[in-house]
């Protein structure tokens, strides 16, 4: 299997606090991987490091969407998104003064290029591009079953729809790796089941890899090809769902000392 993201010895310090400690993670093409661990284990910090929101203290982040290794640590978030890593956020961060469709249209920003002059003149190429953006955004909206909300302001969308809209927005940036930060948090069981199918569908239709942070073990176990477990910023286990289920270190981290 070809890996598209390789994280080597990633370390992140906040002052004296070491949030991540020599983390090694590798993600393969078309793989659904999960990053799990107790609260405060450093999962979101890991996301923030690879998407450029934090600058890692040490270590390397390499991407190779087309087989060529490229170092991306320390790059700005927008550059990293352009290179094909898109993410969602743990607490929803949609653009609240825009409609659902427009949110996705913003996502198309990095794959389009009309500038100020083009916008003012509204020439042929700009018009064509704008039309393309609209069509593509609507297509994604439909793919995630959100087309009924097309012209609604995002603040009036139900919670579950907002979460899906964040995924849609990330997809619009045309990533090769989608990073989902707790996509099932706050969803009811039925919505979680739908999410399960949705994530598989996204992988098939867009031909991309997905890395998710999730606490819902049922979802993680049924979806993931590979699971990475972190605790206190260190990796304590890796493997298929079955392997993880029987990994003593993982059980210890989750259930405490005495069970083992």
């Amino acid at each position: 299997m070809k890996s598209i993201l390789k994280v080597k010895n990633l370390t992140m310090n906040f002052g004296g606090l070491r949030a991540l400690h020599n983390l090694n993670i590798s993600i393969n093409k078309k793989e659904i991987a999960a990053l799990i661990g107790p609260n405060g284990a450093g999962k979101t910090t890991f996301f923030n490091c690879i998407t450029g929101i934090y600058k890692p203290s040490n270590g390397d982040i390499l991407i190779s969407p087309k087989g060529n290794n490229e170092k991306i640590n320390g790059l700005k978030p927008n550059i990293i998104t352009k290179k094909g890593l898109a993410r969602t956020f743990q607490n929803i961060r949609l653009f609240t003064s825009m409609t659902a469709l427009e949110n996705i249209m913003v996502g198309c920003h990095c794959v389009t290029k009309a500038g100020v002059i083009g916008a003012i003149l509204n020439n042929k190429s700009t018009k064509a591009e704008e039309r393309l953006i609209i069509e593509k955004s609507y297509f994604i909206l439909k793919e995630l079953g959100l087309e009924i909300y097309v012209n609604e302001l995002v603040t009036s969308l139900p919670y579950g729809a907002q979460k899906r809209l964040e995924i849609a927005r990330a997809l619009a940036t045309e990533p090769f790796l989608l990073l989902l930060d707790e996509p099932a948090a706050g969803l009811n069981p039925q919505e979680t089941n739908e999410l399960d199918e949705l994530i598989l569908k996204i992988r098939e239709q867009n031909d991309i890899s997905i890395l998710l942070i999730e606490h819902d073990m049922k979802l993680v176990m049924s979806l993931s090809d590979n699971i990475h477990v972190v605790d206190y910023g260190k990796k304590i286990g890796e493997g298929t769902p079955k392997e993880i289920r029987n990994n003593p270190a993982v059980i210890k981290a989750y259930l405490g000392e005495e069970v083992v």
Binding site: G52, P77, N78, T81, V106, H109, C110, V111
Partner: peptide, 8 residues
């Protein structure tokens, strides 16, 4: 932050 995450 979300804006930057959209590649802007």
């Amino acid at each position: 932050i979300a804006c930057q995450a959209m590649g802007i």
